[in-house]
């Protein structure tokens, strides 16, 4: 087990190195120059050159690459070209914002998705089941940015129930603790609805089919024959087994916590990782692009690793020696 663990961790680090290296190469090959977007074109060429020197963009490829790798290993991600601040500080602000949105959404979609899936599988073929099946299919097929726009239109601009964007009307110091909390919750409702709904719909579809498969197993019939109550069969016998693949699903949705909210953040102007990444891409902010790739690529790899390990813990049949 330890050897397996060691091998997997080593492999993950190599994979992460591959991801950032490929990104680095991609940035070098891509046409266009970040300095063009950074500096007013009317500036004298010496000044443009000075900016270039300042950020070290003129050094040969291998030097830039090695110094970036060396910096990253020491926890220094460079200076953002756009924000003119250390990338680490930019991310330190954005990551908690994204986590606030994504953790709550993830919880929402887990609870709603599992409940809907179990409920509709338990009532298989009934009207309730059909309503759930059809509505989850539709929500699953909605473009989430469009859903966001429609919610904005109805609940913000027509009904004025919720604010249109941002995270809160002010800081804790300005509003006082209680009003800040209320305002934050009001700002969270719609983004969580968009992010949570689409996830919940997918999960409900998945849970329904996996529950249906398990409910047709022999041991469920045995449990029924023993005279167990339907509730106990559903939750103790069926759900526990249907939930095993959920562990993998959870592991695979780890990257979602940091990078899954891009669409929602753009629509609701939520100041998180997704916004930082998209703006970084649009303004060719190389250090920011590399750092966001490193972070979200790292989450993907970590998620895969954890999913594989946890799977062995939950289901002893697939434990690796």
């Amino acid at each position: 087990m330890l050897r397996y663990l060691f091998r997997r961790i080593l492999g993950s680090i190599l994979l992460l190195w591959g991801v950032v290296t490929l990104t680095f190469v991609l940035l070098q090959v891509a046409p266009g120059d970040p300095v063009d977007l950074l500096v007013d074109p009317s500036f004298p060429p010496e000044d443009v050159q000075a900016v270039r020197d300042h950020f070290g963009l003129d050094r040969p490829f291998h030097q830039q690459y090695l110094s970036w790798i060396a910096g990253t290993v020491h926890g220094d991600l460079g200076i953002s070209l756009r924000h003119k601040r250390p990338v680490r500080d930019v991310l330190a602000e954005a990551v908690p914002n994204t986590l606030r949105l994504s953790v709550i959404s993830l919880l929402a979609w887990l609870v709603v998705g599992v409940m809907l899936g179990v409920w509709s599988a338990a009532h298989r073929g009934s009207l309730r089941d059909r309503v759930v099946t059809v509505s989850t299919l539709i929500v699953y097929s909605l473009p989430s940015f469009w859903l966001g726009l429609m919610l904005l239109l109805i609940f913000v601009w027509k009904l004025h129930w919720f604010p249109s964007g941002g995270m809160s009307d002010g800081t804790v110091a300005e509003l006082g603790w209680w009003r800040w909390l209320l305002s934050s919750i009001r700002h969270l409702v719609l983004p969580v609805a968009v992010l949570g709904l689409s996830g919940a719909a997918g999960l409900a579809r998945y849970m329904r089919s996996s529950m249906l498969e398990i409910l047709s197993e022999d041991y469920i019939r045995t449990a029924r024959a023993k005279g167990l109550g339907e509730r106990s069969i559903l939750f103790k016998h069926a759900l526990r087994n249907a939930a095993i693949p959920l562990v993998t699903l959870l592991g695979l949705s780890l990257p979602f916590l940091l990078s899954g909210a891009v669409v929602t953040e753009v629509i609701f102007s939520w100041p998180g990782m997704g916004q930082v990444a998209v703006q970084g891409l649009l303004s060719r902010d190389y250090p920011v692009i590399l750092a966001t790739t490193l972070l979200s690529g790292g989450m993907v790899i970590l998620g895969n690793l954890l999913a594989d390990l946890a799977y062995g813990l939950v289901d002893p049949r697939i434990r690796v020696g």
């Binding site: 994979l15 990078s259 891009v262 891409l281 966001t292 979200s296 993907v300």
Partner: peptide, 8 residues
């Protein structure tokens, strides 16, 4: 390729 955040 799978380790890349695809949307990014």
């Amino acid at each position: 390729m799978l380790a890349f955040p695809r949307l990014f």
